[in-house]
Every structure is written in C-alpha cells, then in structure tokens.
Amino acid sequence: MRIVLTSPAMGVGGAERVVALLVAELAARGHEVALIAPPGMRDAEIAAVPHLRLPLTDEGRGPRGAAQATWELARAIRRLAPDVVHAQNVKSGAAAAIAARLARPDAPPPVLATFHGVLPDEYRTAARLLRLPRHVACVSSDLRDQITAAGLAAERTSVIRNAVDVVPPLTAARRAALDEELGLPAEAPVVAIVGRLVPQKAHGRFLAAARLVLQREPSTRFLVVGDGPLRERLERQVKADGLTGRVLMLGARDDARDLIARADLVVFSSEWEGLSIAALESLAAGTPVVSTDVQGMRELLAGGAGAIVALDDGRALGERVGELLAAPDERAAMGREGVALIAREFSLDGMVSAYEERYRALTA
C-alpha cells in the first residue's frame, strides 16, 4: 500500500514520536511510505528507514501558514497518488482532507486523522474541522467520548491507542554516568517531568509540588526534561523560589528515556492530555507515573500503574509524590503493573496493525 503520512512538525512532541514509529514500522512491513512534514529532530530517528521524505514549509499556525501547507500537500498528493493519507491532529487532518480534494477532485484518497486532544474549550471547533477527514482515530476512549459529545459522528471515529517500542533496561554504568553528569547525590530521590515547556503542561504546578516535597525530603532532585517557549520564565521562577541545584532544567534531550528510567517517579502536572508518549515510556521502563486528573491519564492509570491526583495548585501532586517517595514497595508494585500494562495493551505491533486495518477499511 502507498501511504502518505503528514505532520505539522517533527520536533520533540509525542505525536511526532508516533509518526516516526509509524514510518519505520510501516516501511518494515513492506508499504511504500512518504512523510510530508517540516524538518525536525525526529528525522534522525528514521534517517536509515527507506521512505520518501518531502519537506513542508513551516509558515506558522495562522491562515497564511495553513493555506501554504495545504497547497504544498495538494501538490505532493497529486504527485504521489497515495492509497491513503494519514494526518496528525485537528488542523493537519483538515488541511490534508482539503489537499486531497484539491489534488484529485474526482477521486480524492481517503484521509485518516489521528486525534491527540485539544484544550477543553476547543472541542466544538475541533469536531467541526474533523468532519473533513474520512475517519478519526482517537488515541484514548476519553478523547473519543469528548469529541463525539462535541458533535463528531461516533461512526466516523475509532480508538487506536498510542504505543511505544521497548528498550533495554538502564545499565548500572549508564546510571552512574547520568548521576555524574547531573550531579545527583547518591541515594537521592529523583522526580522527572518530561514534555514541552508550554502552558498545557503546567510546569508551575510541578514547581509548587516540588517545594512541598523538598520540605519533607530536602535531598530530592527534580529533572525538567524538554524545551519550549516558557523555558526562560520557568528558569526565572526556579531561581526566585530558591530551587537552583534541586530543580535541574535539562532542555530537550535525546536520552530522555534514560532519564525516565533513572527517575523514581515521573510526574505530569498537565491541564489536559491525550495519551502521553512520555507516560507510556515511563510505564515501559517500570517508572511509576503521578498525574493530575485529566483525560487520557485517568484512563491509562486506572489499573494501578500510577496515581491520579486532584487538579489543584500543586498541593495534591506534592503530597502524593512525597508519599510515594517514602513507599518503595508501593512504587515497585506500580512499576511492575506499568511494564505489564504496556506489554498487554500498548504494544507497538498492536498499534501499527490497528492502523493497517483502518487503512484497508478506508480503501476497500
């Protein structure tokens, strides 16, 4: 099958990670794969994978940028004549659907959009835009419930959960090297947050929780892994709160999965989530997750692979993190459940097979 994948970015986000995994796995299964997206750091992950890579101009998210991207997509679709086009999230899905009609007005290829979530007040707009693709795959049941409640026809949706590949456990030598690089004291508890530094992730809540934990366990170290527009503001807040040296702003790292495995807990302080790739990577590593009570995460952790706390000013998050740092047996049990959950329900093979089945249904 000839498959075009398109994404508005190939940076550090979870959706971009899913795209890179799909490129590699679909090519390995014998499909002709083309990726149309702006250049980004995820390209390095698929550099050795046989696929056609076409750049997409990144003109921003305004009307001009959307129009430019749509025309470029239309030209590429006309040239490639794919069997199916697979886009990521709302605007990219709508643009791909319009581009498919522009490219081949008489017989446009079917467009599948994967829905990773939007802000709570954006669901009605998202539902209208997602009427343009032929089908919408939601990454969690929570998201499907919300987008259909907002007006998208349920029969045009399905649930295909994100997945992660399994990597070898962190070795003692690698752990020691990380400790030396980061200056982590021996036996100090380590708590990580992994994600873009954007309002959605609510890092201010994470820092409030860190202050509470440090009152209880002053040796704790907090790793902030990721980059984004709020970095300078967060660095100023860390300094103003007297957290320098205990909260480490690490930026975007290509060894984020090692840092996840090194941590005792991974925290999500988010205002909303879809189905976080970083959370799946944490569970796969056996690192328990503590998250605010938001869609996607609530569903993911319901079986005991982590803890859900109230969406407040950070007090509930700090209290639960402190409790778990003092309870190694409970953390170990959560870690075992996380590893089993990934193997049982979030395997990479299962995700790719589900998308293949959807492609076949759309082209039948």
Rank of each mutant, 00 (worst) to 15 (best):
Q200I: 08
D142G: 05
D179F: 09
G40H: 02
V85I: 12
I36Q: 07
P168Q: 05
L130H: 10
A284D: 04
V339H: 02
G245P: 06
S347P: 06
L207A: 03
Y355F: 15
A192R: 05
E72H: 07
R161P: 09
S219C: 04
A69I: 10
E271A: 15
L207R: 07
F115Q: 05
E217D: 12
K239D: 14
R29P: 09
L73E: 07
T70N: 09
E59W: 15
N89K: 13
M10L: 10
G226C: 02
A354R: 09
V321S: 00
Q237S: 13
M351Q: 14
A278L: 03
L248P: 06
A69Y: 00
L5F: 13
A240L: 09
E271Q: 07
D121F: 03
M1P: 14
R128K: 14
L283N: 03
W272S: 14
R233W: 04
R262Q: 12
I193R: 13
A333E: 13
G242Y: 02
A252W: 15
T70V: 11
L129P: 04
T125H: 15
G226R: 05
A149N: 11
L212W: 09
G11N: 06
R134G: 03
Q68M: 13
V352D: 08
T57S: 15
E59H: 15
A37P: 11
A94M: 05
Q68K: 11
N89M: 15
V339S: 00
G274Q: 09
L112N: 05
I77A: 10
A261Q: 02
A81V: 15
R216C: 10
L5S: 11
E345W: 14
A173Q: 15
G183I: 00
